[in-house]
Design a protein around this nucleic acid. Structure first.
Lengths: 337, 337
DNA sequence: ATGAAAGCGCTAACAA
DNA sequence: TTGTTAGCGCTTTCAT
């Protein structure tokens, strides 16, 4: 039913009366043929709807014009945005992208590396959940670029990340400048990855402005429940026991959102009583009311940069730098002055 | 730098002393060899990290074990969920998936069909933005399955969709049963696709319960602005001129969210004064406060069903049915009684 | 139980 | 300007 065999270069050659080689030249714009020949062949290609067979091409060239993208979860807005822009970038360069959802499962991720390897991908971009990259991750020496996370046992794989430390620093500094002195730090310690740098930036800002670090202001979201729920509960408990604050830095937008609800429950005005800044610039910071100030990680820039580095490596250009830290942006909305 | 040539079946043959044919048999578990031979060869494969070359395999078999997925926008939660489950399904069946973002651009989408064609994909799943499929969409007769949208000039391509008509019917019926008599219908008429069925279900429910259809209760979101903003403005204007309502059916969650904000601005209590039901069961219906009742389209079921149909077609089994309508679920949350 | 060889569609080196 | 041919890695048919 579906076995209509596609027309091949040989067929076009036969139909045109020219040889396979000439047809190939025309297809690939290699010159060495007359205008007339070109026209004839192109017409045939058009009318018969000839499409070249990439498997044969790949086999011949040992190059598939294909790359692999390994991400933890495509339904997460951050990763989806990465995927979108990696795909766009490579589509423009005539590459197709295999998208692989590792689902935070190291076994699955290793399996995907093998699959991509056997599919002769020319390169791999990964947001890896692997703590270590095994010695023979791929049988060929496939170029790899890491985004956001980095295995402990590698130091020559290019790495692109956002400046999270600076992000949390800027967020905290902004709160201080707007008068906050008792700033909650809502940390995210999810199973897959911790965000130590974000707490570090928070502390750096306090230090800079001479505000003592107070461990009672640290609330920790563990990832056991959806983080907006956990954050809401944690903050509600905090407020319940009579503790106060005038600013909140949350290292995820969902935690920021949860704290917003807790504040509203206790009739605290935002930003009059408490100002909030989140992290990631996800959709819900603009969908809620009031809208939430946040740190944008410049996902697009990260995706493009990683793609460019990978493409350079594929073309055998040494990447300029091993580490690329993409600057962040502080996005001001209604939850801050 | 990256040109380490991978070890081939020929190398394994040479190393083992056996012929290429025997090695191939072992690799593919075809039998016809002794336990001893098998062990020797498997050991070599293990130690040298041999991975088979899929381009050669594809060329030989005229089959790539690859499928293409064409979607409008991977950052949209609905499409991302489809992508996730299509990918999972096919990974289990040893297929890899090319994900293509058509970005609601018909030209781009056509280009992707060509690309997938030349990559010898064994099948394509698409949420197409094309009004018509051109005659020679693919040069081979590649199996195609459509999800959610369907071209006007086709009737033999299997199609999987959710029962949107029933969804809006159930939503409206529920509101009526909970006492609503003046139910707003917030329609979505975005550029890419209209949602006529959703209005049809709304009207069907009114009819069933003998409530006259009142065109003044129709608010139309055009897609010019983000739909939650547009909905908020539309409803605010509506309330401003003194009009009232006791229920809202919005054919998108974002529109539901926008109307929620408008109601809150006018100090209307939800669900006491006005009840709301949205459509799509997106993340923000549980992130907002109060949480919003909505229609779940069973995205996972749609993705799996479409994948199964495609796999059947690839394996030359006729799909049982041309049209699959996946039932929806009414999800009750705080915005309704 | 094992091997030799053809051929999938394509490109490029060499020939004319 | 055009053609002939080898060979990319693999599976499979036909011998042995």
């Amino acid at each position: 039913m579906f076995d209509k065999k596609p027309i091949s270069i040989k067929d076009i050659a036969k139909l045109s009366g020219y040889s396979i080689a000439t047809v190939s030249r025309v297809i690939n714009h290699k010159g060495q043929y007359s205008k007339e020949t070109e026209q004839k062949i192109l017409n045939l290609i058009e009318t018969y709807g000839y499409v070249s067979n990439n498997a044969a091409k790949s086999l011949r060239a040992s190059k598939s014009n294909t790359i692999g993208l390994i991400i933890p979860d495509i339904t997460n807005e951050f990763y989806a945005t990465i995927a979108l822009h990696v795909e766009h970038f490579f589509a423009d360069a005539s590459y197709s992208v295999f998208v692989c959802n590792a689902a935070n499962d190291p076994q699955k991720e290793l399996m995907y590396f093998r699959t991509l390897d056997s599919r002769l991908v020319d390169g791999i971009i990964c947001i890896s959940g692997l703590q270590y990259f095994p010695k023979n991750l791929t049988s060929r020496n496939i170029p790899i670029v890491c985004i956001d996370r980095y295995p402990d046992n590698q130091d020559n794989i290019p790495f692109v990340a956002s400046d999270d430390m600076d992000g949390s620093y800027q967020a905290t500094e902004y709160l201080i400048q707007k008068g906050c002195r008792k700033i909650l730090n809502i940390e995210s310690y999810t199973a897959s990855y911790d965000k130590r740098l974000r707490t570090a930036g928070y502390e750096k800002a306090l230090l800079k402005y001479g505000i003592p670090i107070n461990k009672e202001l640290y609330l920790r979201v563990t990832g056991r429940d959806p983080s907006h729920i956990e954050a809401e509960i944690l903050l509600a408990e905090y407020l319940q026991r009579g503790s106060t604050c005038d600013g909140i830095f949350a290292s995820s937008d969902r935690a920021a959102l949860g704290s917003l609800y807790a504040l509203q429950r206790y009739n605290l005005k935002i930003p009059e009583d408490v100002q909030i800044i989140g992290f990631d610039n996800t959709l819900y910071t603009i969908l809620c009311s009031p809208t939430i100030s946040t740190i944008s990680r410049n996902t697009v820039a990260m995706a493009k940069k990683a793609s460019q580095i990978l493409l350079d490596m594929i073309c055998d250009k040494e990447p300029e730098q091993r580490q690329t830290i993409v600057p962040i942006d502080l996005i001001l909305r209604q939850s801050t002055h």
